[in-house]
Protein backbone atom coordinates (compact mmCIF):
# COMPACT_ATOMS: atom_id res chain seq x y z
CA UNK A 1 0.00 0.00 0.00
CA UNK A 2 1.14 3.53 -0.86
CA UNK A 3 -0.08 6.13 1.64
CA UNK A 4 0.18 9.86 0.99
CA UNK A 5 -0.63 12.09 3.94
CA UNK A 6 -1.08 15.84 4.05
CA UNK A 7 -3.51 18.70 4.47
CA UNK A 8 -5.79 20.25 1.88
CA UNK A 9 -6.85 23.91 1.95
CA UNK A 10 -10.53 23.38 2.77
CA UNK A 11 -11.21 24.59 6.30
CA UNK A 12 -14.20 22.36 6.99
CA UNK A 13 -12.94 19.15 5.40
CA UNK A 14 -12.91 16.32 7.97
CA UNK A 15 -10.22 13.69 8.20
CA UNK A 16 -10.51 11.40 5.17
CA UNK A 17 -8.76 8.11 4.55
CA UNK A 18 -9.25 6.02 1.46
CA UNK A 19 -8.43 5.21 -2.13
CA UNK A 20 -8.21 8.18 -4.47
CA UNK A 21 -9.92 8.56 -7.84
CA UNK A 22 -9.53 11.31 -10.43
CA UNK A 23 -12.66 13.18 -11.55
CA UNK A 24 -11.69 15.81 -14.15
CA UNK A 25 -9.81 18.55 -12.25
CA UNK A 26 -10.73 17.01 -8.90
CA UNK A 27 -9.72 14.13 -6.68
CA UNK A 28 -12.40 11.99 -5.11
CA UNK A 29 -11.91 10.39 -1.71
CA UNK A 30 -15.09 8.72 -0.47
CA UNK A 31 -17.92 11.22 -0.74
CA UNK A 32 -15.66 14.24 -1.03
CA UNK A 33 -14.20 16.09 -4.03
CA UNK A 34 -10.92 17.95 -3.62
CA UNK A 35 -9.48 20.35 -6.22
CA UNK A 36 -6.17 19.09 -7.60
CA UNK A 37 -4.29 22.29 -6.82
CA UNK A 38 -0.82 23.07 -5.44
CA UNK A 39 0.16 21.06 -2.37
CA UNK A 40 -0.72 17.54 -1.28
CA UNK A 41 -3.56 17.33 -3.83
CA UNK A 42 -1.02 17.89 -6.64
CA UNK A 43 1.25 15.27 -5.11
CA UNK A 44 -1.57 12.73 -4.94
CA UNK A 45 -2.61 13.57 -8.52
CA UNK A 46 0.88 12.88 -9.86
CA UNK A 47 1.10 9.61 -7.90
CA UNK A 48 -2.30 8.68 -9.30
CA UNK A 49 -1.14 9.43 -12.86
CA UNK A 50 1.74 6.96 -12.39
CA UNK A 51 -0.52 4.37 -10.76
CA UNK A 52 -3.09 4.57 -13.54
CA UNK A 53 -0.47 4.38 -16.28
CA UNK A 54 0.97 1.17 -14.80
CA UNK A 55 -2.38 -0.14 -13.61
CA UNK A 56 -1.24 -0.25 -10.00
CA UNK A 57 -3.67 0.03 -7.13
CA UNK A 58 -4.47 3.67 -6.41
CA UNK A 59 -2.68 5.47 -3.59
CA UNK A 60 -4.48 5.73 -0.27
CA UNK A 61 -4.77 9.29 0.94
CA UNK A 62 -4.91 10.49 4.53
CA UNK A 63 -5.98 14.12 4.29
CA UNK A 64 -7.76 16.72 6.40
CA UNK A 65 -8.72 20.36 6.00
CA UNK A 66 -6.21 22.84 7.41
CA UNK A 67 -5.64 26.47 6.42
CA UNK A 68 -2.75 27.04 8.80
CA UNK A 69 -4.00 26.52 12.35
CA UNK A 70 -2.64 22.98 12.49
CA UNK A 71 -5.97 21.38 13.43
CA UNK A 72 -6.18 19.16 10.35
CA UNK A 73 -2.47 18.41 10.60
CA UNK A 74 -2.90 17.03 14.11
CA UNK A 75 -5.82 14.85 12.97
CA UNK A 76 -3.59 13.35 10.27
CA UNK A 77 -0.72 12.67 12.67
CA UNK A 78 -3.08 11.14 15.23
CA UNK A 79 -4.80 8.93 12.64
CA UNK A 80 -1.46 7.62 11.39
CA UNK A 81 -0.15 7.06 14.91
CA UNK A 82 -3.24 5.05 15.83
CA UNK A 83 -3.66 3.08 12.60
CA UNK A 84 -0.26 2.62 11.00
CA UNK A 85 0.25 -0.90 12.32
CA UNK A 86 -3.03 -2.03 10.74
CA UNK A 87 -2.46 -0.17 7.47
CA UNK A 88 1.06 -1.60 6.99
CA UNK A 89 2.09 0.74 4.15
CA UNK A 90 4.93 -0.30 1.86
CA UNK A 91 5.56 3.37 1.03
CA UNK A 92 4.59 6.26 3.34
CA UNK A 93 4.87 9.80 1.96
CA UNK A 94 4.36 12.71 4.36
CA UNK A 95 3.69 16.15 2.94
CA UNK A 96 2.10 19.51 3.90
CA UNK A 97 1.42 19.46 7.66
CA UNK A 98 2.05 21.76 10.60
CA UNK A 99 5.53 20.72 11.72
CA UNK A 100 4.68 19.29 15.15
CA UNK A 101 7.86 17.77 16.44
CA UNK A 102 6.31 15.72 19.23
CA UNK A 103 3.70 14.14 16.94
CA UNK A 104 6.38 13.44 14.32
CA UNK A 105 8.39 11.66 17.01
CA UNK A 106 5.36 9.61 18.07
CA UNK A 107 4.62 8.70 14.46
CA UNK A 108 8.15 7.48 13.96
CA UNK A 109 7.83 5.25 17.04
CA UNK A 110 4.96 3.50 15.21
CA UNK A 111 6.94 3.31 11.96
CA UNK A 112 9.72 1.49 13.82
CA UNK A 113 7.27 -1.25 14.79
CA UNK A 114 6.47 -2.09 11.15
CA UNK A 115 8.10 -5.17 9.66
CA UNK A 116 9.06 -4.83 6.87
CA UNK A 117 9.71 -1.12 7.36
CA UNK A 118 8.03 1.18 4.82
CA UNK A 119 9.97 3.41 2.47
CA UNK A 120 9.66 6.79 4.21
CA UNK A 121 9.39 9.94 2.07
CA UNK A 122 9.02 13.51 3.34
CA UNK A 123 8.59 16.78 1.52
CA UNK A 124 7.31 20.24 2.51
CA UNK A 125 6.84 20.82 6.25
CA UNK A 126 7.00 17.10 7.01
CA UNK A 127 10.60 17.31 5.81
CA UNK A 128 11.12 20.38 8.05
CA UNK A 129 9.72 18.47 11.05
CA UNK A 130 11.75 15.32 10.36
CA UNK A 131 14.95 17.38 10.18
CA UNK A 132 14.10 19.60 13.16
CA UNK A 133 13.34 16.62 15.40
CA UNK A 134 16.58 14.87 14.44
CA UNK A 135 14.98 12.06 12.41
CA UNK A 136 16.24 13.03 8.96
CA UNK A 137 18.50 10.00 8.60
CA UNK A 138 15.58 7.68 9.46
CA UNK A 139 13.85 8.79 6.24
CA UNK A 140 14.62 7.29 2.84
CA UNK A 141 13.87 10.31 0.63
CA UNK A 142 13.78 14.09 0.98
CA UNK A 143 13.06 16.28 -2.07
CA UNK A 144 14.34 19.78 -1.19
CA UNK A 145 14.77 22.78 -3.46
CA UNK A 146 17.91 24.90 -3.05
CA UNK A 147 16.65 27.01 -0.14
CA UNK A 148 15.48 23.86 1.61
CA UNK A 149 18.87 22.24 1.00
CA UNK A 150 20.45 25.21 2.81
CA UNK A 151 17.98 24.53 5.64
CA UNK A 152 18.98 20.85 5.79
CA UNK A 153 22.63 21.88 5.86
CA UNK A 154 22.12 24.40 8.67
CA UNK A 155 22.56 22.47 11.88
CA UNK A 156 20.61 24.94 14.01
CA UNK A 157 17.72 25.92 11.74
CA UNK A 158 14.27 24.57 12.55
CA UNK A 159 12.56 26.23 9.57
CA UNK A 160 13.81 27.56 6.19
CA UNK A 161 12.84 31.10 7.27
CA UNK A 162 15.57 30.99 9.92
CA UNK A 163 18.52 29.75 7.90
CA UNK A 164 21.92 31.28 8.44
CA UNK A 165 22.05 34.17 5.93
CA UNK A 166 25.47 33.19 4.65
CA UNK A 167 24.32 29.63 3.98
CA UNK A 168 21.19 30.87 2.18
CA UNK A 169 23.13 33.27 -0.04
CA UNK A 170 25.88 30.84 -0.93
CA UNK A 171 23.64 27.86 -1.80
CA UNK A 172 23.46 27.82 -5.59
CA UNK A 173 23.99 25.42 -8.46
CA UNK A 174 27.79 25.60 -8.08
CA UNK A 175 27.81 24.82 -4.36
CA UNK A 176 25.17 22.07 -4.33
CA UNK A 177 27.77 19.28 -3.77
CA UNK A 178 29.20 21.08 -0.72
CA UNK A 179 25.75 21.69 0.72
CA UNK A 180 24.74 18.09 0.20
CA UNK A 181 27.89 17.00 2.04
CA UNK A 182 27.17 19.47 4.84
CA UNK A 183 23.56 18.26 5.15
CA UNK A 184 24.80 14.68 5.62
CA UNK A 185 27.55 15.78 8.00
CA UNK A 186 24.98 17.62 10.16
CA UNK A 187 22.51 14.70 10.15
CA UNK A 188 20.05 16.83 8.18
CA UNK A 189 19.59 14.58 5.16
CA UNK A 190 17.55 11.49 4.37
CA UNK A 191 19.15 8.34 2.90
CA UNK A 192 18.60 9.83 -0.57
CA UNK A 193 18.12 13.44 -1.62
CA UNK A 194 16.60 14.80 -4.79
CA UNK A 195 17.68 18.44 -4.90
CA UNK A 196 15.44 20.37 -7.29
CA UNK A 197 16.78 23.37 -9.18
CA UNK A 198 18.16 24.52 -12.54
CA UNK A 199 19.81 21.10 -12.49
CA UNK A 200 18.31 18.35 -10.35
CA UNK A 201 20.72 16.28 -8.25
CA UNK A 202 20.27 12.81 -6.82
CA UNK A 203 22.60 12.15 -3.91
CA UNK A 204 23.31 9.94 -0.96
CA UNK A 205 25.85 10.14 1.87
CA UNK A 206 28.66 9.44 -0.60
CA UNK A 207 27.82 12.40 -2.80
CA UNK A 208 26.03 13.05 -6.07
CA UNK A 209 24.83 9.91 -7.87
CA UNK A 210 23.40 11.58 -10.97
CA UNK A 211 22.03 14.85 -12.26
CA UNK A 212 19.42 15.98 -14.78
CA UNK A 213 19.71 19.35 -16.47
CA UNK A 214 17.53 19.12 -19.51
CA UNK A 215 15.25 20.09 -20.96
CA UNK A 216 15.77 23.38 -19.16
CA UNK A 217 12.39 25.03 -18.58
CA UNK A 218 13.00 27.95 -16.16
CA UNK A 219 9.27 28.73 -16.07
CA UNK A 220 8.64 25.56 -14.06
CA UNK A 221 10.14 27.21 -10.98
CA UNK A 222 7.26 29.70 -10.91
CA UNK A 223 4.54 27.08 -11.01
CA UNK A 224 3.16 26.16 -7.61
CA UNK A 225 3.07 22.37 -7.29
CA UNK A 226 5.92 21.27 -9.56
CA UNK A 227 7.88 20.04 -6.54
CA UNK A 228 4.76 18.28 -5.25
CA UNK A 229 4.29 16.40 -8.53
CA UNK A 230 7.89 15.19 -8.48
CA UNK A 231 7.48 13.78 -4.98
CA UNK A 232 4.18 12.17 -5.95
CA UNK A 233 5.80 10.41 -8.91
CA UNK A 234 8.73 9.34 -6.72
CA UNK A 235 6.36 7.73 -4.22
CA UNK A 236 4.40 5.86 -6.90
CA UNK A 237 7.48 4.67 -8.80
CA UNK A 238 9.07 3.34 -5.62
CA UNK A 239 5.77 1.62 -4.87
CA UNK A 240 5.89 0.13 -8.39
CA UNK A 241 9.20 -1.46 -7.41
CA UNK A 242 11.85 0.81 -8.91
CA UNK A 243 14.96 1.33 -6.84
CA UNK A 244 15.06 4.72 -5.17
CA UNK A 245 17.77 6.46 -7.27
CA UNK A 246 16.03 5.41 -10.50
CA UNK A 247 12.65 6.59 -9.21
CA UNK A 248 14.16 9.97 -8.30
CA UNK A 249 15.87 10.38 -11.65
CA UNK A 250 12.83 9.42 -13.73
CA UNK A 251 10.52 11.69 -11.73
CA UNK A 252 12.79 14.71 -12.13
CA UNK A 253 13.11 13.94 -15.84
CA UNK A 254 9.35 13.47 -16.29
CA UNK A 255 8.61 16.84 -14.70
CA UNK A 256 10.98 18.60 -17.10
CA UNK A 257 9.54 16.78 -20.08
CA UNK A 258 6.02 17.69 -18.97
CA UNK A 259 7.15 21.30 -19.06
CA UNK A 260 8.65 20.88 -22.52
CA UNK A 261 6.00 18.98 -24.50
CA UNK A 262 3.65 21.96 -24.61
CA UNK A 263 4.10 25.68 -24.14
CA UNK A 264 4.80 26.42 -20.49
CA UNK A 265 4.72 29.94 -19.10
CA UNK A 266 5.07 31.28 -15.54
CA UNK A 267 1.26 31.41 -15.52
CA UNK A 268 0.75 27.72 -16.34
CA UNK A 269 -1.20 25.92 -13.61
CA UNK A 270 -0.09 22.68 -12.02
CA UNK A 271 -3.13 20.71 -13.21
CA UNK A 272 -2.00 21.39 -16.80
CA UNK A 273 1.41 19.87 -16.00
CA UNK A 274 -0.21 16.85 -14.31
CA UNK A 275 -2.46 16.26 -17.34
CA UNK A 276 0.66 15.97 -19.52
CA UNK A 277 2.27 13.21 -17.44
CA UNK A 278 0.66 10.17 -19.13
CA UNK A 279 1.91 11.45 -22.49
CA UNK A 280 5.41 11.88 -21.05
CA UNK A 281 5.43 8.32 -19.69
CA UNK A 282 4.17 6.96 -23.00
CA UNK A 283 6.34 8.90 -25.42
CA UNK A 284 9.61 9.54 -23.62
CA UNK A 285 10.10 7.41 -20.54
CA UNK A 286 8.52 4.08 -21.46
CA UNK A 287 11.82 2.19 -21.55
CA UNK A 288 13.28 3.81 -18.39
CA UNK A 289 10.20 3.08 -16.34
CA UNK A 290 9.74 -0.47 -17.55
Amino acid sequence: MLIIAGIVPIKTLPLLEGRVMKERAFLRIGDYQIPATQGTAAMISAALAVSQYFQLESPRAVVAGDIGRGDGSRLIYQYLIQNLLQLKPRVLALHYCMPDLELMRQLYEQVKLLDPPPVLIADAASMYAAKAVGLASAFDVFTPDLSELAFLADKEAIHPAYIDKHLFESCDIKTVPEFIALAYENQGAARYLLVKGKADYIADKNGILSSIDGPDIPELECIGGTGDTITGMVAALIYKGLNIPDALKISAQANRLAGAIETTTPATRINEIIDRLPQVFKSSLKREIS
Binding site: G39, I67, P99, A124, D145, C222
Partner: peptide
Protein backbone atom coordinates in the same frame (compact mmCIF):
# COMPACT_ATOMS: atom_id res chain seq x y z
CA UNK B 1 5.13 35.44 -9.83
CA UNK B 2 3.12 38.30 -11.34
CA UNK B 3 2.40 39.60 -14.81
CA UNK B 4 4.39 42.78 -15.50
CA UNK B 5 1.68 44.64 -17.35
CA UNK B 6 -1.30 43.98 -15.11
CA UNK B 7 0.28 43.15 -11.74
CA UNK B 8 -1.88 40.02 -11.62
CA UNK B 9 -0.51 37.20 -9.50
CA UNK B 10 -0.19 34.16 -11.77
CA UNK B 11 1.51 31.69 -9.41
CA UNK B 12 3.00 31.13 -5.97
CA UNK B 13 5.41 28.31 -5.25
CA UNK B 14 7.72 26.93 -2.59
CA UNK B 15 7.14 26.55 1.13
CA UNK B 16 5.72 23.70 3.12
CA UNK B 17 3.58 25.00 5.99
CA UNK B 18 -0.14 24.18 6.04
CA UNK B 19 -1.41 27.65 5.14
CA UNK B 20 0.52 27.81 1.85
CA UNK B 21 -1.96 25.85 -0.34
CA UNK B 22 -4.75 28.06 1.13
CA UNK B 23 -2.86 31.30 0.45
CA UNK B 24 -2.07 30.08 -3.07
Amino acid sequence: TYEKESGLIVNTSGGGCPDIPYLH
